[in-house]
Design a protein around this nucleic acid. Structure first.
Lengths: 172, 172
DNA sequence: GGGTACATGTAATCAGTTACATGATTTA
DNA sequence: TAAATCATGTAACTGATTACATGTACCC
Protein backbone atom coordinates (compact mmCIF):
# COMPACT_ATOMS: atom_id res chain seq x y z
CA UNK A 1 0.00 0.00 0.00
CA UNK A 2 2.20 2.85 1.23
CA UNK A 3 5.73 2.93 -0.11
CA UNK A 4 7.96 0.53 1.73
CA UNK A 5 9.71 1.83 4.79
CA UNK A 6 13.30 1.04 4.05
CA UNK A 7 14.31 3.16 7.00
CA UNK A 8 15.68 0.97 9.69
CA UNK A 9 14.35 1.83 13.11
CA UNK A 10 16.81 1.71 15.96
CA UNK A 11 16.26 2.19 19.68
CA UNK A 12 17.14 5.81 19.04
CA UNK A 13 14.24 6.03 16.62
CA UNK A 14 11.78 4.68 19.14
CA UNK A 15 13.00 6.95 21.86
CA UNK A 16 12.47 9.98 19.66
CA UNK A 17 9.16 8.64 18.43
CA UNK A 18 7.94 8.03 21.97
CA UNK A 19 9.04 11.36 23.29
CA UNK A 20 7.26 13.14 20.49
CA UNK A 21 4.16 10.99 20.87
CA UNK A 22 3.95 11.94 24.53
CA UNK A 23 4.62 15.64 23.95
CA UNK A 24 2.11 15.99 21.18
CA UNK A 25 4.48 18.32 19.43
CA UNK A 26 8.13 19.02 20.03
CA UNK A 27 11.19 20.73 18.67
CA UNK A 28 14.59 19.08 18.92
CA UNK A 29 15.46 21.36 21.74
CA UNK A 30 12.38 20.38 23.66
CA UNK A 31 13.32 16.78 23.12
CA UNK A 32 16.58 17.54 24.80
CA UNK A 33 14.79 18.61 27.96
CA UNK A 34 12.49 15.63 27.66
CA UNK A 35 15.54 13.39 27.90
CA UNK A 36 15.33 13.94 31.62
CA UNK A 37 16.79 12.11 34.55
CA UNK A 38 15.11 8.70 34.36
CA UNK A 39 15.80 7.88 30.76
CA UNK A 40 19.25 9.35 30.56
CA UNK A 41 20.53 6.59 32.82
CA UNK A 42 18.83 4.01 30.73
CA UNK A 43 19.68 5.16 27.24
CA UNK A 44 21.13 8.58 26.53
CA UNK A 45 21.32 10.33 23.16
CA UNK A 46 23.69 12.91 21.79
CA UNK A 47 21.99 16.24 21.21
CA UNK A 48 22.86 16.17 17.52
CA UNK A 49 20.79 13.03 17.17
CA UNK A 50 17.77 14.94 18.33
CA UNK A 51 18.09 16.96 15.14
CA UNK A 52 19.03 14.26 12.65
CA UNK A 53 16.78 11.50 13.88
CA UNK A 54 13.47 13.40 13.71
CA UNK A 55 14.43 14.52 10.20
CA UNK A 56 15.04 10.91 9.25
CA UNK A 57 11.75 9.80 10.75
CA UNK A 58 9.90 12.59 9.00
CA UNK A 59 11.33 11.48 5.68
CA UNK A 60 10.07 8.00 6.43
CA UNK A 61 6.61 9.35 7.12
CA UNK A 62 6.57 8.54 10.81
CA UNK A 63 6.65 12.17 11.84
CA UNK A 64 5.27 15.32 10.32
CA UNK A 65 7.53 18.34 10.21
CA UNK A 66 6.36 21.93 10.47
CA UNK A 67 8.83 24.76 10.22
CA UNK A 68 8.18 28.19 11.70
CA UNK A 69 7.73 30.81 9.03
CA UNK A 70 9.63 33.53 10.82
CA UNK A 71 12.03 34.22 13.62
CA UNK A 72 14.09 31.18 14.46
CA UNK A 73 12.34 29.01 11.96
CA UNK A 74 12.44 26.12 14.39
CA UNK A 75 11.19 22.75 13.27
CA UNK A 76 8.28 21.21 15.15
CA UNK A 77 7.46 17.54 14.92
CA UNK A 78 4.32 15.53 15.52
CA UNK A 79 3.78 11.84 15.18
CA UNK A 80 1.72 10.54 12.24
CA UNK A 81 -0.68 7.63 12.15
CA UNK A 82 2.04 5.53 10.60
CA UNK A 83 4.44 6.53 13.33
CA UNK A 84 1.92 5.67 15.98
CA UNK A 85 1.47 2.24 14.49
CA UNK A 86 5.22 1.62 14.30
CA UNK A 87 5.52 2.63 17.92
CA UNK A 88 2.74 0.44 19.20
CA UNK A 89 4.03 -2.54 17.21
CA UNK A 90 7.40 -2.08 18.80
CA UNK A 91 5.92 -1.78 22.28
CA UNK A 92 4.01 -4.99 21.85
CA UNK A 93 6.93 -7.18 20.84
CA UNK A 94 9.07 -8.34 23.78
CA UNK A 95 12.68 -7.95 22.70
CA UNK A 96 14.73 -11.08 22.14
CA UNK A 97 18.20 -9.97 23.17
CA UNK A 98 19.76 -9.13 26.48
CA UNK A 99 21.95 -6.11 27.02
CA UNK A 100 25.66 -6.59 27.40
CA UNK A 101 27.22 -5.24 30.55
CA UNK A 102 29.63 -2.90 28.72
CA UNK A 103 30.96 -1.52 31.95
CA UNK A 104 34.37 0.09 31.47
CA UNK A 105 35.43 -0.83 34.99
CA UNK A 106 34.64 -4.47 34.50
CA UNK A 107 36.43 -4.42 31.19
CA UNK A 108 39.66 -3.34 32.82
CA UNK A 109 39.14 -5.87 35.54
CA UNK A 110 38.78 -8.55 32.91
CA UNK A 111 42.08 -7.63 31.35
CA UNK A 112 44.02 -7.60 34.55
CA UNK A 113 43.68 -4.21 36.19
CA UNK A 114 44.18 -4.15 39.93
CA UNK A 115 40.76 -4.99 41.39
CA UNK A 116 40.98 -2.85 44.50
CA UNK A 117 42.16 0.19 42.64
CA UNK A 118 39.25 -0.02 40.24
CA UNK A 119 36.82 -0.89 42.99
CA UNK A 120 37.56 2.20 44.99
CA UNK A 121 36.49 4.74 42.39
CA UNK A 122 33.71 2.58 41.05
CA UNK A 123 32.21 2.27 44.46
CA UNK A 124 32.01 6.03 44.84
CA UNK A 125 30.40 6.46 41.46
CA UNK A 126 27.81 3.80 42.11
CA UNK A 127 26.96 5.14 45.52
CA UNK A 128 26.29 8.50 43.96
CA UNK A 129 24.13 7.00 41.29
CA UNK A 130 22.29 4.98 43.89
CA UNK A 131 21.49 8.15 45.79
CA UNK A 132 20.19 9.74 42.59
CA UNK A 133 17.85 6.85 42.02
CA UNK A 134 16.61 7.01 45.58
CA UNK A 135 15.87 10.66 45.07
CA UNK A 136 14.07 9.94 41.81
CA UNK A 137 12.01 7.30 43.53
CA UNK A 138 10.99 9.71 46.24
CA UNK A 139 10.11 12.45 43.78
CA UNK A 140 8.20 10.17 41.48
CA UNK A 141 6.18 8.38 44.10
CA UNK A 142 2.53 8.68 43.24
CA UNK A 143 3.03 11.16 40.43
CA UNK A 144 5.26 9.57 37.78
CA UNK A 145 3.78 7.01 35.39
CA UNK A 146 4.32 3.31 35.97
CA UNK A 147 6.93 2.65 33.27
CA UNK A 148 9.50 5.22 34.35
CA UNK A 149 8.99 4.28 37.99
CA UNK A 150 9.67 0.64 37.27
CA UNK A 151 12.80 1.63 35.42
CA UNK A 152 13.96 3.61 38.42
CA UNK A 153 13.37 0.57 40.58
CA UNK A 154 15.37 -1.57 38.20
CA UNK A 155 18.18 0.95 38.23
CA UNK A 156 18.09 1.03 41.98
CA UNK A 157 18.40 -2.72 42.18
CA UNK A 158 21.38 -2.75 39.86
CA UNK A 159 23.15 0.03 41.65
CA UNK A 160 22.73 -1.85 44.90
CA UNK A 161 24.19 -4.88 43.23
CA UNK A 162 27.14 -2.88 41.96
CA UNK A 163 27.78 -1.47 45.39
CA UNK A 164 27.63 -4.96 46.81
CA UNK A 165 30.01 -6.25 44.16
CA UNK A 166 32.69 -3.60 44.41
CA UNK A 167 32.47 -3.56 48.20
CA UNK A 168 33.07 -7.27 48.29
CA UNK A 169 36.22 -6.75 46.26
CA UNK A 170 37.48 -4.09 48.62
CA UNK A 171 36.87 -6.34 51.59
CA UNK A 172 38.49 -9.43 50.14
CA UNK B 1 59.26 12.48 20.31
CA UNK B 2 57.43 9.84 18.28
CA UNK B 3 54.85 11.13 15.84
CA UNK B 4 51.65 11.98 17.60
CA UNK B 5 49.12 9.23 17.82
CA UNK B 6 46.06 10.89 16.44
CA UNK B 7 44.32 7.55 16.46
CA UNK B 8 41.59 7.56 19.04
CA UNK B 9 41.52 4.45 21.13
CA UNK B 10 38.13 3.03 21.98
CA UNK B 11 37.20 0.11 24.20
CA UNK B 12 37.29 -1.95 21.03
CA UNK B 13 40.91 -0.98 20.58
CA UNK B 14 41.83 -2.08 24.06
CA UNK B 15 40.01 -5.35 23.75
CA UNK B 16 41.93 -6.17 20.58
CA UNK B 17 45.16 -4.93 22.08
CA UNK B 18 44.69 -7.04 25.20
CA UNK B 19 43.73 -10.16 23.36
CA UNK B 20 46.80 -9.88 21.17
CA UNK B 21 49.04 -9.08 24.13
CA UNK B 22 47.88 -12.24 25.85
CA UNK B 23 48.16 -14.43 22.76
CA UNK B 24 51.62 -13.26 21.85
CA UNK B 25 50.63 -13.39 18.24
CA UNK B 26 47.23 -13.71 16.63
CA UNK B 27 45.35 -13.54 13.38
CA UNK B 28 41.91 -11.94 13.22
CA UNK B 29 40.37 -15.33 13.12
CA UNK B 30 42.17 -16.41 16.23
CA UNK B 31 40.91 -13.27 17.89
CA UNK B 32 37.45 -14.41 17.07
CA UNK B 33 37.93 -17.59 19.08
CA UNK B 34 39.59 -15.60 21.83
CA UNK B 35 36.36 -13.64 22.18
CA UNK B 36 35.09 -16.57 24.20
CA UNK B 37 32.23 -16.92 26.62
CA UNK B 38 33.22 -14.61 29.47
CA UNK B 39 33.97 -11.51 27.50
CA UNK B 40 31.22 -11.83 24.96
CA UNK B 41 28.66 -11.14 27.65
CA UNK B 42 30.60 -8.15 28.78
CA UNK B 43 31.50 -6.54 25.49
CA UNK B 44 31.09 -8.30 22.19
CA UNK B 45 32.63 -7.29 18.86
CA UNK B 46 31.52 -7.85 15.32
CA UNK B 47 33.86 -10.17 13.45
CA UNK B 48 34.59 -7.53 10.84
CA UNK B 49 36.04 -5.36 13.57
CA UNK B 50 38.60 -8.03 14.28
CA UNK B 51 39.96 -7.31 10.81
CA UNK B 52 39.68 -3.56 10.66
CA UNK B 53 40.71 -2.72 14.20
CA UNK B 54 44.08 -4.53 14.18
CA UNK B 55 44.86 -2.85 10.88
CA UNK B 56 44.08 0.51 12.41
CA UNK B 57 46.21 -0.22 15.46
CA UNK B 58 49.07 -1.39 13.28
CA UNK B 59 48.96 1.86 11.36
CA UNK B 60 49.18 3.69 14.67
CA UNK B 61 52.23 1.69 15.64
CA UNK B 62 50.61 -0.20 18.49
CA UNK B 63 50.72 -3.51 16.68
CA UNK B 64 53.16 -5.03 14.23
CA UNK B 65 51.69 -6.76 11.22
CA UNK B 66 53.25 -9.75 9.48
CA UNK B 67 51.64 -11.23 6.44
CA UNK B 68 52.21 -14.82 5.34
CA UNK B 69 54.20 -15.02 2.13
CA UNK B 70 52.23 -17.87 0.63
CA UNK B 71 49.02 -19.81 0.88
CA UNK B 72 46.32 -17.83 2.60
CA UNK B 73 48.54 -14.86 3.22
CA UNK B 74 46.93 -14.41 6.61
CA UNK B 75 47.91 -11.43 8.67
CA UNK B 76 49.48 -12.03 12.07
CA UNK B 77 49.66 -9.34 14.70
CA UNK B 78 51.88 -8.80 17.71
CA UNK B 79 51.87 -5.97 20.18
CA UNK B 80 54.69 -3.40 20.05
CA UNK B 81 56.38 -1.62 22.92
CA UNK B 82 54.23 1.39 22.23
CA UNK B 83 51.14 -0.78 22.26
CA UNK B 84 52.12 -2.33 25.53
CA UNK B 85 52.55 1.10 27.06
CA UNK B 86 49.18 2.28 25.81
CA UNK B 87 47.59 -0.82 27.26
CA UNK B 88 49.16 -0.53 30.66
CA UNK B 89 48.32 3.16 30.87
CA UNK B 90 44.74 2.31 30.15
CA UNK B 91 44.66 -0.46 32.73
CA UNK B 92 45.99 1.84 35.39
CA UNK B 93 43.42 4.58 35.01
CA UNK B 94 40.08 3.84 36.70
CA UNK B 95 37.36 4.87 34.28
CA UNK B 96 35.24 7.87 35.16
CA UNK B 97 31.90 6.95 33.61
CA UNK B 98 29.29 4.41 34.46
CA UNK B 99 27.64 2.20 31.89
CA UNK B 100 24.10 2.94 30.90
CA UNK B 101 21.60 0.13 31.30
CA UNK B 102 20.60 0.07 27.62
CA UNK B 103 18.31 -2.85 28.15
CA UNK B 104 15.73 -3.13 25.37
CA UNK B 105 13.17 -4.61 27.72
CA UNK B 106 13.47 -1.78 30.19
CA UNK B 107 13.26 0.70 27.35
CA UNK B 108 9.87 -0.61 26.30
CA UNK B 109 8.77 -0.67 29.89
CA UNK B 110 9.75 2.96 30.19
CA UNK B 111 7.59 3.91 27.24
CA UNK B 112 4.54 2.10 28.40
CA UNK B 113 4.73 -1.53 27.32
CA UNK B 114 2.74 -3.97 29.40
CA UNK B 115 5.03 -4.92 32.27
CA UNK B 116 3.91 -8.50 32.70
CA UNK B 117 4.13 -9.27 29.03
CA UNK B 118 7.69 -8.02 28.88
CA UNK B 119 8.59 -9.64 32.18
CA UNK B 120 7.61 -13.08 31.05
CA UNK B 121 10.07 -13.40 28.20
CA UNK B 122 12.74 -11.38 29.95
CA UNK B 123 12.63 -13.71 32.91
CA UNK B 124 13.29 -16.73 30.73
CA UNK B 125 16.20 -15.07 29.00
CA UNK B 126 17.80 -14.01 32.25
CA UNK B 127 17.35 -17.39 33.83
CA UNK B 128 19.17 -18.94 30.91
CA UNK B 129 21.96 -16.42 31.15
CA UNK B 130 22.19 -17.01 34.87
CA UNK B 131 22.64 -20.71 34.27
CA UNK B 132 25.40 -19.95 31.77
CA UNK B 133 27.26 -17.88 34.31
CA UNK B 134 26.90 -20.56 36.93
CA UNK B 135 28.39 -23.02 34.49
CA UNK B 136 31.25 -20.62 33.70
CA UNK B 137 31.92 -20.19 37.37
CA UNK B 138 32.13 -23.94 37.87
CA UNK B 139 34.40 -24.43 34.88
CA UNK B 140 36.67 -21.57 35.76
CA UNK B 141 37.10 -22.36 39.39
CA UNK B 142 40.76 -22.62 40.20
CA UNK B 143 41.92 -22.48 36.60
CA UNK B 144 40.76 -19.17 35.10
CA UNK B 145 42.62 -15.97 35.93
CA UNK B 146 41.27 -13.58 38.52
CA UNK B 147 39.96 -10.86 36.19
CA UNK B 148 37.65 -13.00 34.11
CA UNK B 149 36.43 -14.82 37.19
CA UNK B 150 35.49 -11.58 38.88
CA UNK B 151 33.63 -10.55 35.77
CA UNK B 152 31.69 -13.79 35.85
CA UNK B 153 30.79 -13.11 39.45
CA UNK B 154 29.63 -9.63 38.56
CA UNK B 155 27.54 -11.02 35.72
CA UNK B 156 26.07 -13.57 38.05
CA UNK B 157 25.08 -10.92 40.53
CA UNK B 158 23.36 -8.85 37.88
CA UNK B 159 21.52 -11.76 36.41
CA UNK B 160 20.22 -12.63 39.85
CA UNK B 161 19.09 -9.06 40.22
CA UNK B 162 17.33 -9.18 36.87
CA UNK B 163 15.56 -12.36 37.81
CA UNK B 164 14.52 -10.80 41.07
CA UNK B 165 13.27 -7.68 39.30
CA UNK B 166 11.22 -9.32 36.57
CA UNK B 167 9.85 -11.90 38.99
CA UNK B 168 8.65 -9.17 41.26
CA UNK B 169 6.77 -7.66 38.35
CA UNK B 170 5.11 -10.93 37.54
CA UNK B 171 4.05 -11.38 41.12
CA UNK B 172 2.66 -7.91 41.61
C1' DG C 1 27.18 47.03 27.29
C1' DG C 2 29.87 43.03 27.82
C1' DG C 3 30.02 38.52 29.49
C1' DT C 4 27.91 34.13 30.25
C1' DA C 5 24.78 30.69 29.72
C1' DC C 6 21.16 28.74 27.14
C1' DA C 7 19.24 27.70 22.52
C1' DT C 8 19.64 26.00 17.90
C1' DG C 9 21.41 24.02 14.36
C1' DT C 10 24.82 21.96 10.34
C1' DA C 11 28.98 19.59 8.65
C1' DA C 12 32.56 16.37 8.75
C1' DT C 13 34.32 12.35 10.40
C1' DC C 14 34.56 7.78 11.98
C1' DA C 15 33.38 3.58 14.30
C1' DG C 16 30.52 -0.08 13.89
C1' DT C 17 27.18 -2.87 11.18
C1' DT C 18 25.59 -5.37 7.28
C1' DA C 19 26.29 -7.47 3.18
C1' DC C 20 28.95 -9.77 -0.04
C1' DA C 21 32.45 -13.29 -1.48
C1' DT C 22 35.32 -17.05 -1.75
C1' DG C 23 38.64 -20.71 -0.01
C1' DA C 24 39.45 -24.75 2.79
C1' DT C 25 37.93 -28.78 5.53
C1' DT C 26 35.20 -32.00 7.32
C1' DT C 27 31.30 -35.22 7.13
C1' DA C 28 27.47 -37.81 5.34
C1' DT D 1 31.51 -36.11 -4.27
C1' DA D 2 28.14 -33.03 -2.65
C1' DA D 3 26.78 -30.49 1.16
C1' DA D 4 27.65 -28.20 5.06
C1' DT D 5 30.45 -25.73 8.01
C1' DC D 6 34.43 -23.30 9.28
C1' DA D 7 37.84 -19.86 7.93
C1' DT D 8 39.03 -15.50 5.96
C1' DG D 9 38.52 -11.44 4.32
C1' DT D 10 36.73 -6.72 1.77
C1' DA D 11 33.31 -3.18 0.56
C1' DA D 12 29.56 -0.27 1.29
C1' DC D 13 26.74 1.97 4.22
C1' DT D 14 24.95 4.54 8.00
C1' DG D 15 24.23 5.78 12.76
C1' DA D 16 26.58 8.15 16.15
C1' DT D 17 30.11 11.34 17.74
C1' DT D 18 32.75 15.46 17.46
C1' DA D 19 33.47 19.82 16.01
C1' DC D 20 32.01 24.05 14.40
C1' DA D 21 28.98 28.13 14.32
C1' DT D 22 25.75 31.53 15.36
C1' DG D 23 21.67 33.54 17.70
C1' DT D 24 19.15 35.10 21.79
C1' DA D 25 18.31 36.37 26.48
C1' DC D 26 19.53 37.44 30.88
C1' DC D 27 22.30 39.60 34.53
C1' DC D 28 26.03 42.15 36.63
Amino acid sequence: MSSKTETRLTPTSYIVLSLIAVSGEATPYELKSAMAAGIRDLWSLQHAQLYTEPARLAKAGLLRERQEEEGRRRKHYRITEKGRRALSDWLKEPPAELAELRDPGLLKLFFGADPKEIAETRLTLHEEKLAEYEELLRQGEGVAPVGPMLVVQAGLGHEREWVRFWSSILES
